[in-house]
Write a protein that binds this DNA or RNA. Sequence first.
DNA 1: AGTTTCATTCTAAACGATTAGATTTCTAAA
DNA 2: TTTAGAAATCTAATCGTTTAGAATGAAACT
Lengths: 340, 340
Amino acid sequence: MLTIKDVAKKSGFSVATVSAVVNGLPVVSPKAKEQIQSAIKELGYRPNRVARSLKNSKTSSLAMIVRDVTNPFYPEVIMGFEDVAWSNNYEVFLCNTENNPEREKKYIDNLIGRRVDGVVIATSFIQRENHYDRLLENGIPYVFLNRRPEQLLDHEYFVGSDNAAASEKAVLHLTELGYKDILYMSGPLNLYTFKKRYEGFLRTMDKMGLPVGEDRILFSSDFMEKSGSEHAKRILGYEKMPEAIFCSNDLLAFGVHQTFKEAGMRIPEDVALIGLDNNRYSHLIDLSTVEPQNNQMGRKAGEVLLGLLKIKDVIAHEQKEIILEPRLIIRKSSGADARS
Amino acid sequence: MLTIKDVAKKSGFSVATVSAVVNGLPVVSPKAKEQIQSAIKELGYRPNRVARSLKNSKTSSLAMIVRDVTNPFYPEVIMGFEDVAWSNNYEVFLCNTENNPEREKKYIDNLIGRRVDGVVIATSFIQRENHYDRLLENGIPYVFLNRRPEQLLDHEYFVGSDNAAASEKAVLHLTELGYKDILYMSGPLNLYTFKKRYEGFLRTMDKMGLPVGEDRILFSSDFMEKSGSEHAKRILGYEKMPEAIFCSNDLLAFGVHQTFKEAGMRIPEDVALIGLDNNRYSHLIDLSTVEPQNNQMGRKAGEVLLGLLKIKDVIAHEQKEIILEPRLIIRKSSGADARS
DNA sequence: AGTTTCATTCTAAACGATTAGATTTCTAAA
DNA sequence: TTTAGAAATCTAATCGTTTAGAATGAAACT
């Protein structure tokens, strides 16, 4: 494999001069520059970034830690993040924890060993995992994405969507359409996003002066369709059905939709339905929902991280938290057509 | 940042001995081992993998190049690949080309510079991109995933799904249900998968002795829902509707489903529908389809690559092509309930 | 005691770049 | 023709590991 020495030998200049032209330093004569460049081209030389990284202790690589790429939330986020990384000449490691804290810990250790320049953590539970400290100790900046610990330490940053506002938008949409008896289906409250969504729901219902009956809030230990289906079956057994159902995420809504359809219930005629996430396929079942701007979240996380690395062209955000405003997406499932 | 020298100093041994215990070489005395290990723990030392990579010219990193993470095909593949990489102590770079050959080329150059140990290419058009040569020149093995150039060179490998067989399964399923007039909706033929699916369709119809009318094959320049919708509108204008529609991928089928539903057509009563891909959300519209085993594809690609790197515990496949057998998934859209 | 053997441990040279600081070459004024 | 000063280039140290091969010391054998 070719090294800088080969280029030096071929072009008749020293490695220092070759290095200078490779790095575009303005101290070389036009003649040298030309000869060296043609030697590089002729040999097909590519600088070894490993050696370079060792010398200037900077790897130009970032990492994104996710729970499960397969969760439809992530691809958009990854896309956004990867794109800003790419534009700034960074490569990105994708780390999938499969929701296993041990694996997350090991991944973080590996990333430290690799001396990545920064990492985005898009996995965390509310309780702080102590292995984030190790990143700090090793001077590697990190930003939380979407979920975060309750308390941000001095060096910690957060990019997310305003989950409480998302709930608020969903509820207001329903109340504007005249629904009063609204059931809320929650995901696990130990996840930051679901906690906020839950709070947003309660707050808005309260603000609207609407009571929330005891059986009008259902909790799940996950946020998958299956849980949605199971809850839907429970709801079908209710004496009095709610007028509208607000699912804290679209997957739950998918499950509800499926089960209701099988049971012969019509949406929105018999019961209105709204989700939250704007899953890539939500339009297939005409699900009204709220869009948290996943791609933007990824992009912002990238920008904050690069800002922390003092990359030119990227303004370091002095804000510790960047909260994106979600957008309401109105489709048929909420009954806007019928009622407006 | 801590180095091996710090550990050497602290423990009173030389860097060579420290290195030996870090790497678990069986040449150190128990006493040395113990003292060094406790020094490591106390300091919180982590070997610098960059330096290590430089020395033994091996980075323990792989890359996966994809067109668009957001395409629902990829997450499963990535998941599978990442998992076998992880189990073998490799990290993976995710490279998104956004379907831009220039970007792919630049990515490959970057990866060479980074001296990744191997790469999975899950993007390629049928015509060979000459920048793959550069990987070979630099001794970096690569395997094609899902799509491949017509001709595999000596050093090239391929992992994919049997797309022709997938079409065959779909068609046979339809013919077994008694459908004879089947319309085929194709994706772009310059993509390997769609070419094979198309061939499989023609071959099977021929084998069954079924004629394929001129207006019973529709081509699209992409494979998105929108194209499916547009074709569906065209079909609605036909004098004679087909009995069944076989879409070369689920996204197209989503479009057809949507448009037909809006037009008041019933599936499968008025026309049967089957897709190909088993998209994560296909069950939402009860779409019968064929499942190409994406996760397995990712896993296999990882195994082949690691095999090429002569990793222990992974048998290097001497096969140049690994073709996974797709599975038929029967749901309501093909009318199996009604007709069986 | 003097050798030989063996198990440990160490010294120092890589790996392929970057970069101070030294050295050479060039330019132009005296 | 000299020579100061600038411009171009070079030498060599360095980044943090790994790993030959040398050195050390203890045990075992004459």
